[in-house]
Every structure is written in structure tokens, then in C-alpha cells.
């Protein structure tokens, strides 16, 4: 399945693009996505342990299962205010 991932802030700067589409096997989880992203975009490894993933506008942990059509975003820890 194809999953499109949006990047924000330092993750977008590291990725060098604001989104990317990644092909993942059915029932792939967030940690699979992170591994695939880091191999496609090695600069993301600099943020690696701090990289957060949101699925359908909610924070998702590494074990969360991805589904076709999910709205996925990848970003560093937040710093608003």
C-alpha cells in the first residue's frame, strides 16, 4: 500500500521535501514506516530517536498499524507558545 507522509519543521528541512509517498506492505506499523523513511531519506536519522508520527491527526506509537488512505505526518517534538 502507498502511504503519503507530510513533514514539518526540522523534519521537513532534513527530508528536503514537504511530503513523500512510501510503499509499505499491508499491516505495516509505524516503526516499519520510520525505518523505510530513514533509508529513503538518510538525513532524517539525525532526528531519529526524536521523530514523532501522527496518524489521522493523532499521535501514533511505534506499534500502531497503518491503513491505506491514512493521513500520516512526521515531525520533531513540538515547540509552540
Amino acid at each position: 500500500m502507498n502511504i503519503t507522509v507530510q513533514f514539518f519543521a526540522a523534519a521537513r528541512d532534513a527530508a528536503g521535501c514537504s511530503e513523500i509517498t512510501i510503499d509499505l506492505p499491508e499491516k505495516a506499523v509505524v516503526s516499519d514506516l520510520k525505518r523505510r523513511l530513514e533509508s529513503r531519506l538518510p538525513a532524517l536519522q539525525t532526528l531519529s530517536s526524536r521523530l514523532l508520527v501522527a496518524v489521522n491527526q493523532e499521535y501514533a506509537d511505534d506499534g500502531a498499524v497503518l491503513h491505506p488512505g491514512d493521513d500520516v505526518a512526521c515531525f520533531p517534538p513540538v515547540s509552540g507558545g
Binding site: 514539518f8 526540522a10 520533531p76 515547540s79 507558545g81
Partner: peptide
């Protein structure tokens, strides 16, 4: 400040710019 997905990049007087880490 802990949860809402908003980020800030700081521009400094010496010309450097960096994303702020919480």
C-alpha cells in the same frame, strides 16, 4: 507547549537560525 503540533525557528542577532528544541 507539550502536545500541540506547532514549532518555532529562532533567528538570532548573529545571523544564525535554528529550530527551537523543547
Amino acid at each position: 507547549k507539550q502536545h500541540t503540533p506547532i514549532w518555532k525557528k529562532e533567528m538570532r542577532g548573529d545571523g544564525s537560525a535554528e529550530w527551537v528544541h523543547p
